[in-house]
Design a protein around this nucleic acid. Structure first.
Lengths: 228, 228
DNA sequence: ATAAGGTTTAACTGAACAGTTAACACGGGG
DNA sequence: CCCCGTGTTAACTGTTCAGTTAAACCTTAT
């Protein structure tokens, strides 16, 4: 069987004329499009064609810049994760007061997530379906091996908690429980937002008011829970 | 083009001989298999072939009992959701004391989720990727229109909170914030488990010990947060 | 100019997938 | 005894999808 000579249509469509000096960074456009699509549909549910369309390019370009769907999704995951985890490590690992850490973490998380509403649902979903990737991806996102950084962080917290317990200004609590309680209260409302919207009848504006209220109340709530 | 007569192999494989009176409920086997596969991979990532294999049946049987993949996944979602939501509504809507509700909800949620570790990740993932289905699915899971049940529940909680505020035994808090804080602390650790496993270096046994400790500490923590 | 090399395109390929078809099995009621 | 409805199977179909190919384009350096 002889392959027939390919019939070709004109390659550069007339609408695609680019301004020469204004070369848009195609790779960045693709990454942004991929992020939008992967956030909405998850890695398994996303379609390369949809990403190409959203970026306004041909599907082959996706493979030119990122060999496979897997690599593209990994790039997106890393980008998204690196907005969330370093803040946690830096804030809790700093040498500021415990109360300061609580205030700061709540403030930056609620602010950050308010502008990236889909991030928590996406991250939980990806980590749930691809637990085998977690280790390497977290390493990249934090910028160091979490198995070295985190124990140090927990030690620091434990010391600070013990000081306050000795002062009589705080009840004892394991540093792990401390961290989990704090980030649960910050992140979960965003992860469960689709549910809350229906269950509590919240539209987008109502949800934002709800979060604004949390910004004011959460620090007090959390510190209150730890009073002796 | 005339279709050639089909060549057929023997239809009933010898190993598949069923005990006649002991007709296993095939539909239930399929549902259980579907649940396992959908929980692991999510609706988009799951493969009908894998479900068939896990149920030990032919792929065509899946379509015989549940017309499409979508219906099968809806059946699974409803089954899983109906283990989580009714308990919430019943517990918080009951006419027991506020402290009793807190204790009860924490106890049953941590117990229940400990035996269904993948449920929170699965539910959050599905709700995130298919928000349009939430309404109908929640209605089925709760057994009533959530937009009628939930406001009543919130009213009840608000009344109980107001009583305690008047007594001076509780700080004021909006009933929505009350509910979200409570279920955040219960559910989030399970949803984020893949992350915690790596970040805190917890294996399965360590995670279970972690949850056991929460069972004891959470009620105190939560009530403490609301002391005046 | 022009050749080189990075960029972008239409068309193609092979595999995987959800869903269909028609044959076969078998117990129960006529 | 036979056929009818439900259950079950192997094989098939049409589509969608990730990934490939080779031609065409564009910019810059020579």
């Amino acid at each position: 069987m002889i392959k027939p000579a390919r019939k070709r249509k004109p390659v550069r469509s007339p609408t695609a004329a680019k301004i020469p000096g204004r070369e848009a960074a195609t790779e960045q456009r693709i990454l942004a499009a991929a992020r939008a699509v992967f956030l909405r549909h998850g890695t398994a549910g996303a379609r390369m064609q949809e990403i190409a369309a959203e970026a306004g390019v041909n599907q082959a370009l996706l493979h030119y810049y990122f060999r496979t769907k897997e690599r593209l999704s990994a790039a997106v995951f890393q980008q998204v994760a690196s907005r969330i985890f370093p803040a946690l490590v830096q804030t809790l690992g700093a040498e500021t007061s415990l109360d300061g850490k609580i205030n700061h973490l709540i403030a930056i998380y609620l602010d950050n997530l308010s502008q990236n509403l889909f991030v928590p649902g996406y991250l939980i979903s990806e980590l749930h379906h691809h637990p085998e990737r977690v280790q390497q991806l977290l390493s990249g996102a934090i910028g160091a091996d979490p198995q070295i950084v985190m124990p140090a962080l927990l030690k620091t917290l434990e010391r600070q908690i013990n000081e306050r317990v000795r002062d009589g200004t705080m009840r004892p609590i394991k540093p792990q429980q401390f961290v989990i309680n704090l980030i649960s209260l910050c992140i979960f409302p965003f992860a469960a937002r689709p549910m809350l919207s229906i269950v509590f009848g919240m539209n987008d504006a109502a949800f934002m008011r709800f979060i604004e209220q949390r910004k004011k109340e959460l620090p007090e709530f959390f510190r209150g829970a730890l009073r002796p």
